[in-house]
Design a protein around this nucleic acid. Structure first.
Lengths: 341, 341
DNA sequence: TTGAAAGCGCTAACAC
DNA sequence: GTGTTAGCGCTTTCAA
């Protein structure tokens, strides 16, 4: 059903039909009624592509989701919550958040993918996740002058809108807590080094140690994928040291689940012999044994704010709040505790 | 950079440029070289929307992902693996899998969303996930005569392409195993009743009981969201019965994690006093305490096959294998075992 | 081998 | 208040 057929059916010109349907005032009320009625009956929907070509806007916002090396899994399930919240907000203005995947080890590199999207004008705006400190995607988007918001900061942060959780504060809190528990050797099982969030978390960790006049032990910071498997492997490596750490701070709850398994395997009781802390406050952590001490980072709130920022940019507004650092909260549970004497 | 500007820059007509770039043979080789060279230099990309309007194809495949009641989370993280695999396959033919979300409790119902997509011709093909036995989306897609593949079966299964895991066999295996362990009261903590997979799993469960000449106890099948929280709540309810079950089969690993927490809370040792089995073979289950006995269901293989089926349908081929029931495998670990005497 | 021109379905300026 | 018409950027027929 095209506007052409609808117009013919009604004995009107297509322009009149178009105007009736798009809320123009210079259409007789009776005509509008008739058109709307018939459009509903015939289940008419304007052809999205044709409308886009004419208007120059696709009414969709793109986000590229990273897939890990085996091409089988979004790096972190929390993206689900983030995207759901963004979508809910932008929907009100007729926009749609559409997600595509990028296989980290696929043929095309991520930057080329962005370039294609930008030049083909696929999206009216972009959401960039999993930022790097020096992020080429940001440079690309800035150059193309297309609206975008990043989830996570970059070194160019003052020149683009971003929303982020306070990663530094999160690991400052977690580290301080272990120090207060009497731990002197605290290890950080961090995420991949290239990402801003990993860098910030390490900053928080180091700052807490410094404040307590502790020196980070050699080899007490490891980097790797935020998965159970990696958390397990890292924890094993840590515990095999001559002087193993007594507290393990993990970049995600998933890593902490893996780390706890390694501790059990080494005959340690988590929460008594060794402290383990996660990040993300997932349900899994809440129901693990022992329940996982973790960091709550309100992903949905971040998503909603990102949605609002995107809408503001799409509306050409530059006066909206450009940056938001979401505070975090430590959720104390049973996986950490005082250093055993 | 439009084809117009590129043509002007080259001193050629846009039609010649178009043909040179699209592999037509009636273009002088020298001209083609020159055009391709310059296009690369100027980083020309055809406008995706314009091309779509002309060709009638968007080169994208849509999938609508369900978001749960709080609008914050894809119902199941395994979708990530599925979509990654599908995307990897269809990319080879220039297609792109794009995911949009649907909030189960949002303003617009899912069917209306599909109707909009179909009439606006957003996608060349659709992937339908989380099927119901009588699925209105399937009827809609069939009526619209647009290529689609479902992940999961429907009652109309013989008339549309689908890929599914053998849910029935999975729970037949899991139930049989408990019966062999000596359990006589096996409970099923199932997913939401409306979905085909829940129905099939219950079929498998009942079939195993019947074969062993056991009657399912009253109230030994519950339905709910596939989350840790729900698994926990259901298990609590089960264990509070006068004659509680000694084995709990869960629709997902996440539910099983929750169920195990409830067992611990009731003072039961999982794997000794009570059996718990999950489904999905997630990393979390592998590293839980005790490690979770579960069902492996090769999501990525399914995704690859779905991709191939979609491509076949998009190419107008109807001779391709239309249905695929992927076999499952039970992964024995320590969360279940012989009935304590 | 190349260029002119039609047209995909729609919106919006302009004419009546 | 309504119709005619010119594009949006591209592909593809047709004529040269």
């Amino acid at each position: 059903m095209s506007i052409h057929r609808l117009a013919r059916d009604l004995g009107l010109s297509i322009s009149t039909v178009s105007r009736a349907l798009n809320g123009y005032t210079d259409v007789a009320e009776a005509t509008r009624q008739r058109v709307e009625q018939r459009a509903r009956e015939l289940d008419y929907q304007p052809h999205a592509v044709a409308r886009s070509l004419k208007s120059g806007r696709s009414m969709s916002i793109g986000v590229v989701l990273p897939i890990d090396e085996v091409g089988e899994r979004f790096i972190d399930p929390m993206y689900s919550r983030l995207l759901g919240a963004v979508d809910a907000v932008v929907q009100d203005k007729g926009y749609r958040l559409v997600a595509t995947t990028h296989n980290v080890h696929g043929a095309e590199d991520e930057l080329a993918l962005y370039r294609r999207f930008l030049q083909a004008r696929w999206f009216d705006a972009h959401l960039v996740v999993r930022t790097r400190r020096d992020d080429a995607r940001v440079a690309l988007l800035q150059e193309a002058d297309v609206p975008f918001v990043t989830y996570g900061r970059t070194v160019a942060g003052e020149r683009h809108p971003w929303v982020d959780t306070d990663n530094e504060q999160a690991f400052l809190l977690a580290t301080q807590r272990q120090i207060e528990f009497g731990h002197r050797h605290v290890a950080l099982l961090n995420g991949p080094e290239v990402y801003t969030f990993s860098w910030l978390r390490e900053q928080g960790y180091r700052r807490a140690l410094e404040t307590a006049r502790l020196l980070p032990h050699a080899g007490s910071v490891l980097h790797g994928d935020p998965t159970e498997k990696t958390g397990y492997a890292m924890a094993r490596q840590m515990l095999a040291q001559a002087h193993p750490p007594t507290a393990l701070l993990c970049a995600t709850d998933a890593m902490a689940i893996g780390a706890m398994a390694a501790c059990r395997e080494a005959g340690l009781v988590v929460g008594r012999d060794v402290s383990v802390v996660g990040y993300g406050n997932t349900e899994t952590g809440a129901f693990s044994d022992p329940p996982l001490t973790t960091i709550e980072h309100r992903v949905s709130d971040n998503g909603r704010l990102i949605g609002q920022l995107l809408l503001a940019r799409l509306a050409g507004r530059t006066d909206a709040v450009w940056h938001h650092l979401e505070p975090v909260e430590l959720v104390p549970r049973a996986s950490d505790g005082p250093l055993a004497p």
